[in-house]
Simulated scan of single mutants.
Amino acid sequence: MRIGAIVLAAQDVERYLKAVLPFMDSRDPSIGAALRRHRKLERSTLGPLIDQLTMASVSPCDDFRQQVGELVKRRNDVVHRFAETYGSQLKTGQHQQVVASLWVLEASLLAMRDALAEAVACLLEALRDTTFLGTPEYGEMVEACASFRRAARSVPGS
């Protein structure tokens, strides 16, 4: 059960990163350029997306980079190297330690997912209140923003 929750949370993180990252590039801040950058990210996976996030980060310390890098490593250990990572513990009956490790990873991914969901909501609301303000589509953006916030609140683990 925990492994499935970890995979789903990581997929949410990927999806939210793909929504936010195109707007973090200041070279061409136009909506058209952001949409082109978004299309380029469609097939990107968690590791490269996190790399892009850390490169775009204005954090003055390496602590952020280390933490998200470790999060990706731990997720990859579960998804790609489960037997190598946990096999010996499981064979020696240390099931509780494995479960505890999976709980911690899931909690970390859920925290990142929730922070990114809030960033996406703020981005949508900023677009609503700038780009779409005074346009015929403004009402649709109001509903889209409200719908996104409702959906983000209803996600299991929130």
Rank of each mutant, 00 (worst) to 15 (best):
Ile3Pro: 00
Ala5Lys: 12
Val7Thr: 12
Leu8Gly: 01
Ala9Ile: 10
Ala9Thr: 08
Asp12Leu: 05
Arg15Thr: 15
Tyr16Asn: 14
Leu17Asp: 01
Leu17Val: 03
Val20Met: 01
Pro22Tyr: 06
Pro22Phe: 06
Met24Ser: 07
Asp25Ala: 05
Arg27Trp: 02
Arg27Tyr: 02
Asp28Gln: 06
Pro29Cys: 08
Ser30Asn: 00
Ala33Ser: 15
Ala33Met: 09
Ala34Val: 10
Arg36Asn: 10
Gly47His: 02
Pro48Leu: 12
Leu53Thr: 07
Thr54Met: 13
Thr54Cys: 09
Thr54Tyr: 00
Ser59Met: 13
Ser59Glu: 15
Cys61Lys: 13
Gln67Cys: 10
Val68Leu: 09
Gly69Leu: 05
Val72Pro: 03
Arg74Thr: 08
Asn76Thr: 10
Asn76Ile: 12
Asn76Lys: 07
Asp77Tyr: 01
Val79Leu: 10
Tyr86Ser: 08
Gly87Val: 06
Gly87Thr: 04
Gly87Cys: 04
Ser88Met: 15
Thr92Met: 07
Gln94Gly: 08
Val99Arg: 09
Ser101Tyr: 00
Leu102Gln: 04
Val104Glu: 15
Ser108Asn: 12
Leu109His: 00
Ala111Gln: 11
Asp114Lys: 11
Ala117Gln: 11
Val120Lys: 05
Ala126Gln: 15
Leu127Val: 12
Thr130Asn: 13
Thr135Asp: 06
Pro136Lys: 08
Pro136Val: 09
Tyr138Met: 05
Glu140Ser: 10
Ala146Cys: 06
Arg149Tyr: 03
Ala151Pro: 01
Val155Pro: 00
Ser158Thr: 15
